[in-house]
Design a protein around this nucleic acid. Structure first.
Length: 239
DNA sequence: AAGGAGGACAACCGCAAGAGA
DNA sequence: ATCTCTTGCGGTTGTCCTCCT
């Protein structure tokens, strides 16, 4: 027996949203909010749509202050920088670009940036990503998919939009980072910039040390770590 | 002008995680 | 502790548009 469908596919409409549907959804959400339940929302709003579809439409298109297209060079730079650090964690990347959605950034990367930076000498940036991924696969940094790990790979990078903290079941990241390079900062003017694992390690030393005192040598990655790391990245970009 | 190819963007799907009963 | 339901995420697919031949 498989997983129950989230909605009756025979009843719900699929495909592009009409202006009327957009207006209905937007009007309903502005008046009532989500009510904490996207699944029942379309029924309440009088829409023949799946709740997930409504949520996606709202988040990616109807939500206020959403920017579409027209990515600036600065935004491209930030995307490449964060991508080179966290990989395809689009929600994390989107968190660094106000008004941009993860879907938009993902599309932008897949249709433009990836080719742009794969082309010619620009492969250096992506090679750095490969280096990191290789290190990850070699066990320096477990990926979040490794279900045995409550440690999240993104803990060692920027996770400003995530929970208050995460528990690291492993040794602190400061001792697990690859010796070669942990972060490669993309800068279109110089092709790329790399910083040592030590530099990054130092960033989170304070909170890591604090957390080391906690039970079972678990280390908590806190929002301030993420903020500090991001500041560090932006400093590199601006220098 | 027609149509095929490729690009850009919107939307869907399936999975994992979290929350709550 | 377990199960169910909902949400969030990333990968993939579908559709429309533009450009080229």
């Amino acid at each position: 027996m498989g997983r129950a469908p989230c909605c009756d596919k025979a009843y719900v409409k699929r495909g592009p949203w009409s202006p009327e549907e957009d207006a209905t959804l937007k009007s309903y959400l502005e008046k009532h909010g989500t009510g904490g339940n996207w699944i029942t929302l379309p029924q309440k709003a009088g829409l023949r749509r799946c709740g997930k579809s409504c949520r996606l439409r709202w988040l990616n298109y109807l939500r206020p202050h959403i920017k579409h297209g027209g990515f600036t060079d600065e935004e491209d730079k930030i995307i490449c920088t964060v991508y080179s650090t966290v990989g395809s964690r689009w929600s994390l990347i989107a968190a660094q670009l106000p008004g941009r959605t993860d879907n938009d950034i993902k599309n932008h990367w897949n249709t433009r940036l990836k080719k742009k930076f794969l082309a010619g000498a620009n492969t250096k940036c992506l090679n750095n990503v490969d280096t990191i991924n290789k290190d990850v696969n070699n066990g320096y940094i477990p990926r979040p998919q490794d279900e045995a790990d409550s440690y999240q790979y993104s803990n060692s990078t920027s996770t400003a939009c995530l929970q208050d903290c995460h528990v690291l079941d492993l040794e602190p990241a400061t001792t697990k980072m690859p010796t070669e390079m942990q972060v490669s900062i993309f800068d279109s003017s110089v092709m790329s910039y790399s910083c040592s694992s030590k530099e990054v390690s130092n960033i989170s030393t304070s909170s890591a040390e604090t957390s080391l005192a906690e039970e079972n040598h678990h280390t908590k990655w806190l929002d301030q770590d993420e903020a500090i790391l991001l500041d560090f990245v932006y400093d590199l970009l601006n220098n």
